[in-house]
Design a protein around this nucleic acid. Structure first.
Lengths: 204, 204
DNA sequence: TTCTGTGAATTGTTTCACAGCC
DNA sequence: GGCTGTGAAACAATTCACAGAA
């Protein structure tokens, strides 16, 4: 379920604030959802709350983390070390959530040897060896759109089964490969769409 | 509708490839959706296709762009010029989709005066003046979680009505303000979740 | 009494399937 | 004949509302 990460983050915030027990109402407010939805979501994982009391913050946090696979460490490779690749390599949210960047790859020889966030940039052709060595299952694509499909093909070929794509293209991969797409400007366009609607409605 | 930006991008790709007319099937494939869904989505905008023929690529592209407010220029401010702020300021996808970064703001005096992507970094307290001067309606938050709510409050106060939030917090704002949230690690966590499920199902 | 867990009702979205136009 | 536009059907998500445990 796509909301589990949100709940996990909300629980971490509550825990850091010293809260040990919370109601579905409290947690829902912290996560920005409706409390009934939260309870239904959590009920799919099992019965981790206590009626009349609420949820034990740390216990629930552990259960969600386990369900999500966040209790183990996931090695990740990032391909394409431009502006975005730099930002991703430096992004502390990955490390703190159990993702370890084991390699930065770029096809451009100019970048090889550069050290970003303590990791050296290596040639893209090393992909297969790195995947094998570290048992990498997840790859991140931060290249321009033109190279994204090729990178994806080679990732799949090297044995990667989950891809996070930041390039503005639809990737074609086999059914056994999971692809998530993050489009930095899409969200901005949706906001502009709403602004536009506001503007045209005022005029009407 | 959240899929319009995707259609717009697919149409641009088709147009650049020299395609002048396409069927709903073609466009759906390029956008990565089902053709019936695409037709239903487009029918909400009006009847821009021709039965038995298909859609005129450039004409449809213009109509979608108009509906989305992408035919005009949107001035945008980015607050928080860390790694992510740098990447966003340099991101060419904003400019090419009608967004113009009119100011980069940071509370940290160390960064003031630094030039990123041709724009100078200014103090956060200049926000109000900049919003007024350029008629900014959309703000981007790329600060740490701790300062995000404060930045959002001041944005709203300065007259901004749409916020794109990259900080890992739920923002509380009035109903008249639209907030979109992009969480870089959430998608990665969802992928890890799927990997986790694959792994546990194999064991079972 | 409080607050979870969950059937039932509601609301929204996606897909089907075909009438109607080119 | 081919393809759009769109009711109707199927499906999925959300919310309501309350029984039942602590």
């Amino acid at each position: 379920m796509a909301r589990l990460p949100v709940y996990l983050r909300a629980l971490t915030t509550l825990s850091e604030a010293g809260t040990t027990v919370c109601s579905s109402e409290d947690l829902a407010a912290a996560a920005g959802v409706n409390s009934a939805k939260l309870r239904k979501d959590l009920s799919y994982l099992g019965s981790y709350g206590t009626r009349g009391v609420g949820y034990d913050v740390d216990y629930l946090r552990y259960q969600i983390a386990r369900e999500m696979g966040a209790t183990r460490d996931w090695p990740v490779v990032i391909v394409g070390i431009g502006n975005l690749g730099h930002a991703l390599a430096n992004y502390s949210g990955f490390r703190s959530r159990g993702f370890r960047v084991v390699a930065l790859l770029d096809a451009d020889g100019q970048r090889h040897g550069e050290v970003v966030a303590g990791v050296v940039v290596r040639p893209f052709r090393d992909l297969r060896a790195i995947v094998r060595e570290h048992g990498v299952a997840i790859g991140v694509i931060a290249t321009p759109a033109a190279s994204a499909q090729d990178v994806a093909d080679q990732m799949v070929d090297a044995g990667i089964t989950s891809i996070l794509n930041f390039a503005p293209t639809v990737l074609n991969v086999g059914d056994h490969v999971a692809v998530s797409k993050v489009d930095l400007s899409k969200e901005l366009q949706v906001l502009a769409y709403h602004e536009q609607r506001k503007a045209t409605q005022e005029t009407a």
